[in-house]
C-alpha cells in the first residue's frame, strides 16, 4: 500500500513536469527558450516517472534496466540539446534580437 502511494506520487509529479514542458513548448516564442523547458522534461520528468516505476517493480531485472535508462538519458540528452543550440545559434542571423550577449572572459 505504501509502495502504491509512493510510486503514484512520483509518477504524477513526473507527469506534471512533462505536461508543463508540453505547455511551455507552446507558450514560449523562441527556440532556445523552448529548449530550456524541454530539457526540464527530459531530465526531471522522465527520471521521476521512471523512478516511480522502479519503486513499483522493486529489486528486479526490470528496475536494473530502468536505472540504466536514466543514466543513458542523463548522459545523452545534454549532448543532443547542446548540438541543437549550436545549430540554432549558427543558423539564426538575428540572434541578438532574442537575447543579449554578456562577456566575462578575457578575450
Amino acid at each position: 500500500m505504501i509502495k502504491l502511494i509512493i510510486s503514484t506520487i512520483l509518477i504524477v509529479l513526473g507527469l506534471i513536469v512533462v505536461i508543463t514542458a508540453a505547455v511551455g513548448n507552446y507558450r514560449f516564442a523562441y527556440v532556445l527558450n523552448r529548449m530550456q523547458v524541454g530539457s526540464t522534461a527530459d531530465t526531471l520528468g522522465a527520471s521521476l516517472v521512471i523512478s516511480g516505476l522502479i519503486v513499483y517493480s522493486g529489486f528486479s531485472l526490470i528496475s536494473l534496466k530502468l536505472v540504466m535508462m536514466i543514466v543513458f538519458l542523463w548522459v545523452a540528452n545534454p549532448v543532443a540539446s547542446h548540438f541543437l543550440a549550436k545549430t540554432e545559434i549558427i543558423e539564426n542571423e538575428d540572434i541578438l534580437d532574442e537575447c543579449e550577449v554578456v562577456r566575462h572572459d578575457s578575450i
Binding site: 512533462v18 514542458a21 508540453a22 513548448n25 527556440v31 523552448r34 529548449m35 524541454g38 522534461a41 527530459d42 522522465a46 516517472v49 521512471i50 535508462m69 538519458l73 540528452n77 543532443a80 540539446s81 541543437l84 545549430t87 540554432e88 543558423e91 539564426n92
Partner: peptide, 19 residues
C-alpha cells in the same frame, strides 16, 4: 517555423515514447 523547432519537438517525442 524553424528547422530547429522541428528537431526539438522530434527529440521530445522520442523522450515521451521512451517513457
Amino acid at each position: 517555423p524553424h528547422f530547429t523547432d522541428r528537431i526539438l519537438a522530434a527529440n521530445s517525442i522520442s523522450t515521451v515514447i521512451i517513457l
